[in-house]
Simulated assay, not measured.
Amino acid sequence: MSGYQHILVTIDLSPNYQKVLDKAVARAKANQAKLSIVHVNLKMQSLYNQMYEVFTHELEDKPLLAAKRELEQMLASVDYPLEKQILISGDLVEQICEAVRLCDADLLICGHEHHLFRQNSSVAHQLVENINCDLLVIPLEK
């Protein structure tokens, strides 16, 4: 194999995540890999516990539509084709692992200050223990 084939990047909508997104795009370009985005939405965690392919489903729910609009704004400047755009909430480890399976990703990229690492130190450990691909963690400034 000559490199990664499908890269999945987790982002939230904070300004720090432009760095994560930029690194994911650079890695995808270098590998000529597919690139998919997972938007981790903790604001909706108490409302939903599932995954949505944001741009392929008709969303009627107001919180989901708001999250979709925010994500579209963040992704408007991405200079690389996106394979899938996924919105997740609920159990982060379970949902991220499912997104990796859905995309058949061989690299997951996420930021160090991401909620999945801040929320509970065991979440990062669970992700490493359960993920079926390589993991790249980008450190972010506080």
Rank of each mutant, 00 (worst) to 15 (best):
Y4S: 06
Y4I: 07
Q5P: 01
Q5A: 13
H6M: 05
I7T: 04
L8N: 03
L8W: 04
L8R: 05
V9W: 03
T10E: 00
D12G: 09
D12C: 06
L13H: 14
L13P: 00
S14T: 15
N16G: 12
Y17G: 00
Q18A: 10
Q18H: 13
K19Y: 06
K19M: 09
V20P: 03
L21R: 04
D22I: 04
D22R: 09
K23R: 13
A24E: 05
A24P: 06
V25K: 10
K29D: 07
A30D: 11
A30Y: 09
K34Q: 11
K34F: 09
K34R: 13
L35H: 06
S36P: 07
S36A: 04
H39T: 04
N41V: 05
L42E: 15
K43Q: 14
M44F: 05
Q45S: 12
Y48D: 02
N49D: 15
N49W: 02
Q50D: 11
Y52D: 04
E53C: 04
E53I: 01
V54C: 08
F55K: 06
F55G: 04
L59K: 08
E60K: 15
D61C: 08
D61H: 15
D61R: 06
P63H: 09
L64I: 10
L65H: 01
L65T: 04
A66G: 03
K68M: 12
R69Q: 15
E70F: 02
E70K: 13
E70L: 12
E70V: 00
L71D: 00
E72S: 12
M74R: 12
A76V: 04
A76R: 10
S77T: 15
V78I: 10
P81C: 08
K84F: 06
Q85T: 15
I86D: 01
L87S: 03
L87C: 10
I88A: 02
I88D: 01
I88W: 03
S89C: 09
G90R: 06
D91F: 05
Q95G: 05
C97I: 01
E98Y: 10
R101Q: 14
L102C: 08
D104F: 01
A105Q: 04
D106M: 11
D106W: 09
D106I: 07
L107T: 08
L107F: 08
L107W: 04
L108R: 07
L108C: 09
I109W: 03
I109E: 00
I109R: 01
C110V: 13
C110A: 10
C110P: 00
G111K: 02
H112K: 14
H112Q: 13
H112I: 00
H115E: 14
H115G: 13
L116Q: 02
L116K: 01
F117A: 11
F117D: 01
Q119R: 11
N120K: 13
N120G: 07
N120D: 15
V123G: 00
V123E: 09
Q126A: 14
V128H: 10
V128L: 15
N130D: 08
N130M: 11
N132C: 08
C133I: 03
L135H: 05
V137I: 15
I138H: 05
P139C: 05
P139W: 05
E141G: 12
K142N: 11
